[in-house]
Design a protein around this nucleic acid. Structure first.
Length: 742
DNA sequence: CCTTAGAATCTTTTT
DNA sequence: GATTCTAAGG
């Protein structure tokens, strides 16, 4: 009896075919991670391959961590030498060692999207670019996709010949790269691009890594872009023991440059490649799988594949259409609660998946009132919160003052009375003398143009210098404490005495404990090491399976995960598939990508799947009326319980809001403003009698308790004015505020 | 130099 | 609706 006996024939083939290129087409839930881990174990234990020679690349840190853990459990000894990590951290590790070969310092910083925007704004100003015509965001997007395709600024300019817009973009691209180089910084895309550049220009370094990584495995291969493909190709160029695992039906990152041809043309690129298909699904019930198959079958140009399962048929897929997004959230909350009460599921078994992050808010509010424990994945990344970025900027400046951006961020935080005029004069001085911004600050007294302001700059420089001198003697967490103490950062927040400041202080505590965790986990903790780890985390990495909470996240974040009970919310044309896809110049391709996303969503469910949508939904402050998603209609009817008809919530008496909704059949939301029907919508018929009056005390989800000051009959709805203690006076519409009389 | 109120923009998805 | 940007007043 060996650990390999539990694998099916195809899985075994994937494990034992260790030499040469292998393409593993693994359908959803077909046990691909098992194959990858067993394969690593097989290499080490049976073939005697030194773990040092194995590289496994995954998409997220979470996936990497899981894979490492599973291998650790199976291999007794030495498995810690396997290199399991994401594309980005793999590249950082390589670049930290060798990037000086291509003219960067090995202590480079990594810019996040916010940093990129700041840089871009600056560039647009300097190049006198009209940001009405060329939005910073779209310029950055153009640069990013160029990098995904390994197109240099020069090549971009060459291609742009004759196209005015493209030529402008090329100029910006060139300038952008120069600024990054000057700041010794790389953006996310550069991590890959520069590694490829390094390998192409330095045969010795390439050879070193080719020798090291004799066996390479790549997970989620369908989401690699051209640059990542090139990287893999270079690394595997010598031994060609490359095993890629992917599913073309789950390719959902085209917007980020994922190149589907990497998987579709793998056999062309590696002529003697062995292709293995894993088609048996171990995750979902037959009904769920059939639903997924029904949807994805509408895509053309996919690799032939038919998922099947020996699992039982299972329950039908629940489908509900609600009046509003509120009702939908209400239903999900109630359903989860009753399932937990019945003892059928734990909170941790349930996931709510949606297309856009904005949808999380309704669920969050409902879950709070229903006291359901939950965790929202995504949205604003922990490390991009203001207070966290401020403190990190201090750390960066102490670590490596070459990062002008970090220095500029904190020079006046907390307020030191240093304003924009002074800063631009310092910048001019720095430019004239070829100094970094920080070095110019150090010489503030020499700068004639700033006068008395130099007295304000001096204490800042002293602070940084003194921190830096302490660096060898104290840990990262101690350094953080020191910064907080010296700058009075937390003291200021305390003084604010608001809910928001409280939250920020909690986040700061969280950051300190992350630093402590880092120090404990690392053998040789360094400040640079900490900053690096922090730069590359995704939100999904923090999901902890052992905790009992419902997770809420976008379909994109859900890839690679599975849950016994899944709620697929907001299945509406216009939201999912989104407008972007419906109105795109190439709708077919975009709709197909959305359809793959739907496929990913459906296949996350193991036992129960509940699909829902709302007729009416607030998006960006505007009310939209949406039809049921076309993807729902692609699910074979007999698999659905419930109908694509109007459905009322049983226990919440709602005034019939759509008494005569003649227009619900039309895609109303396609027309955004000035639609007469939409304006008329809900005349006095929708007005629900209020159970409170002026002078009553009421409670509100967000604002807490307050006293009703005024009620105005606005025709279609009541406008209620409430004075909330501590928050102030708020005006709101009764039907949306959901005020409760106390 | 800093604070504030109103305008503008945004949303598809993220390492 | 919420966040971010801009212009004017203090």
């Amino acid at each position: 009896m060996s650990i390999y006996d539990s694998l099916n024939e195809e899985q075994k083939k994937g494990v034992f075919t260790t030499e040469g290129p292998v393409l593993l087409l693994a359908g959803a839930g077909s046990g691909k991670t098992r194959v990858l881990t067993h394969r690593a174990v097989y290499l080490i234990e049976e073939l005697g391959v030194n773990p040092y020679h194995i590289l496994a690349i995954t998409f997220t840190n979470k996936a990497a961590g899981e894979m490492r853990e599973r291998i650790d459990d199976m291999v007794g000894y030495g498995s810690e030498n396997i290199w399991v990590s994401t594309f980005h951290s793999t590249c950082v590790r390589i670049l930290r060692r060798f990037i000086d070969h291509i003219g960067f310092g090995t202590n480079f910083t990594i810019y996040d999207t916010e940093d990129q925007k700041t840089i871009m704004k600056d560039i647009c100003k300097r190049l006198e670019i009209d940001t009405k015509m060329y939005k910073e965001k779209s310029l950055l997007a153009a640069i990013s996709s160029a990098k995904d395709e390994l197109i240099s600024p020069e090549a971009y300019a060459l291609r742009a010949q004759g196209d005015f817009r493209k030529m402008k973009e090329a100029a910006v691209y060139r300038e952008y790269q120069q600024v990054l180089r000057k700041n010794n910084a790389l953006d996310f895309d550069d991590l890959i691009v520069k590694t490829v550049e390094l390998f192409q220009s330095d045969m010795e370094v390439l050879d070193y890594y080719q020798e090291r990584f004799r066996y390479i495995m790549v997970d989620e291969y369908q989401d690699t872009n051209t640059a990542q493909f090139q990287l893999i190709k270079l690394l595997a160029g010598k031994y060609k023991n490359l095993c890629v695992v992917g599913d073309d039906d789950q390719s959902i990152y085209k917007f980020r440059g994922a190149n589907i041809y990497n998987i579709l043309n793998f056999e062309k690129e590696f002529p003697n490649a062995v292709t293995i298909k894993l088609e048996q699904n171990y995750r979902s019930t037959q009904n769920i799988l059939n639903a997924a198959n029904g949807v994805i079958a509408n895509n053309v140009g996919r690799k032939a594949k038919r998922l099947w399962t020996e699992n039982e048929e299972g329950e039908k897929i629940a489908f509900h259409q609600f009046e509003t997004g509120f009702d939908e959230a209400d239903y999900v909350a109630k359903d989860i609660r009753s399932k937990v009460r019945e003892g059928m599921y734990h909170y941790g078994d349930c996931a709510v998946l949606y297309r856009t992050n904005a949808q999380s808010r309704l669920f969050e509010e409902r879950f709070i009132t229903a006291s359901i424990p939950y965790k929202i994945v995504g949205g604003v990344n922990f490390y991009s919160r203001r207070e966290i970025k401020d403190l990190l900027a201090y750390l960066k400046t102490i670590d490596n003052a070459m990062d002008d951006l970090a220095v500029r961020r904190i020079i006046n935080v907390p307020k030191r009375g240093i304003g924009a005029t002074t800063l631009s004069r310092v910048q001019d001085y720095a430019d004239e003398n070829g100094l970094t911004f920080y070095n110019a600050l150090k010489m503030a007294e020499e700068i004639g143009t700033i006068g008395r302001a130099s007295a304000k700059i001096r204490p800042f420089v002293m602070l940084i210098q003194s921190m830096r001198s302490k660096l060898p003697y104290i840990s990262v967490s101690e350094l953080l404490q020191e910064i907080i103490e010296e700058t009075g950062y937390v003291r200021e927040l305390e003084a604010e005495n608001t809910e928001e400041a409280q939250q920020r202080m909690e986040n700061i505590d969280e950051l300190i404990s992350k630093a402590v965790t880092y120090e404990e986990s690392e053998e040789e903790p360094t400040l640079s090491g900490f900053l690096e780890e922090v730069a590359l985390v995704a939100d999904i990495d923090s999901v902890d399976e052992t905790q009992d909470y419902v997770v809420l996240m976008t379909l994109h974040s859900a890839k690679g995960l599975e849950f016994p009970q899944v709620y697929l919310a907001g299945m509406e044309d216009g939201l999912f598939p989104g407008f972007g896809a419906i109105c795109a110049e190439n709708p077919t391709a975009e709709i197909e990508e959305e359809r793959r996303l739907a496929y990913v969503g459906i296949t996350r469910a193991k036992e129960r799947l509940s699909i829902s949508c709302a007729r009416m939904r607030m998006i960006r402050g505007e009310t939209q009326y949406n039809k049921v998603s076309r993807f729902v209609k692609e699910i074979p009817r007999e698999l659905l319980a419930g109908t694509i008809q109007k459905e009322k919530m049983p226990d919440i008496p709602k005034p019939s809001m759509m008494a005569k909704n003649a227009f619900s059949a039309k895609p109303m939301a396609l027309r955004r403003t000035g639609v007469p029907e939409a304006r008329n919508f809900g005349n006095s018929a929708m007005k629900k009698p209020l159970d409170y009056a002026v002078g009553d005390t009421v409670s509100h989800l967000k604002f807490g308790t307050g006293v009703v000051k005024q009620i105005i009959d606005g025709g279609r709805d009541y406008e209620v004015t409430v004075d909330f203690s501590g928050v102030g006076v708020k005006k709101m519409f009764a039907s949306f505020a959901k005020l409760k009389k106390l």
